[in-house]
């Protein structure tokens, strides 16, 4: 259970990033995990060059934000009216590009990544270490910041409006393209936070995000794609379910853990398509 919450923290981070992009563009970004992985490598490189941890942390987030913004403006702006399939193809292309690029620049050997919180065991006999606890706290900090940003700032409101009704948003003077770019930047930055927090647990290598993104998707879908808070909850829930099932259902074991995520996605989509906390959109005419 505790171990589940700890891994759940990882998925919650990732689910949060997934939901952010979904809010901005209404597509699931398959390259999200690879973008996060790439950001983590940037952080690793900065640390190798001798930057202090938190400076590297902040720099990486800044770089990822700008990177996400630029990707949206250069790659996705030209195809904004293209069919969904075009977007998916581009997502897959980005996925492959980031994956190979990271392998090319930093090679595929597995690298350790430091934790700012240390590795001391807090309680639960080493099930939850200081790093896991720090990670969970960070996830909640990000969540609260995001919530405050979307609820109480003008730009946050403008971003929600641009996603909800782009044409009306233009009619009240919102620069919709800018908002989409911002959404990408933020999602990429959150992905960077997720990647940096996850790396000490799973170690750094170009494929580190593959399964985590799947769990992240599962968490996001479970919690509801329209709800950042739901996504975080979903992430934790997926972590707990995965661990409990892996431990207590003998058939499942370690090998069948991943299909649980996929099973969850399908089950939620069939029985509660909006997720647990997703908003059912009511529309009267």
């Amino acid at each position: 259970m505790l171990a589940g919450i700890a891994t759940g923290g990882i998925y919650a981070c990732m689910a949060l990033a997934v939901v952010m992009i979904y809010q901005a563009i209404h597509h699931l970004n398959f390259a999200q995990g690879e973008m996060a992985m790439f950001s983590t490598f940037i952080a690793w490189q900065l640390l190798q060059w001798g930057f202090p941890y938190w400076l590297a942390f902040v720099l990486t987030i800044g770089i990822s934000f700008v990177g996400g913004f630029i990707i949206e403006r250069t790659v996705f702006k030209p195809i904004e009216n293209a069919p969904v399939l075009s977007h998916i193809v581009v997502f897959i292309a980005l996925f492959a590009i980031f994956n190979s690029l990271a392998g090319f620049i930093w090679d595929f050997t597995i690298k350790p990544f430091p934790s700012p919180f240390g590795n001391a065991s807090l309680f639960g006999d080493g099930l939850i270490g200081a790093h896991q606890a720090g990670m969970i706290v960070m996830t909640f900090v990000v969540l609260v910041l995001l919530f405050a940003f979307f609820r109480y700032t003008r730009v946050g409101l403008a971003m929600r409006a641009a996603a909800a009704n782009p044409e009306s948003a233009r009619l009240v003077g919102i620069r919709v393209g800018m908002m989409t770019g911002l959404g990408w930047g933020m999602a990429s930055a959150i992905g960077a936070v997720a990647g940096i927090l996850i790396a000490p647990v799973v170690f750094l290598e170009p494929n580190m995000m593959l399964s985590i993104l799947l769990y992240g998707f599962a968490g996001a879908v479970l919690g509801g794609l329209t709800s950042p808070g739901g996504a975080v909850f979903g992430g934790f829930a997926v972590g707990v379910v995965e661990n409990l099932a892996g431990t207590y259902i003998p058939v499942v074991g370690a090998e069948l853990k991943l299909p649980i995520a996929l099973f969850l996605i399908i089950a939620v989509l069939v029985f509660k398509p909006n997720g647990l906390f997703g908003r059912t959109i009511v529309q009267r005419v």
Partner: peptide, 9 residues
Amino acid sequence: EGRGTFTTL
């Protein structure tokens, strides 16, 4: 036309 409401807000 159609009022342009931001229905989810």
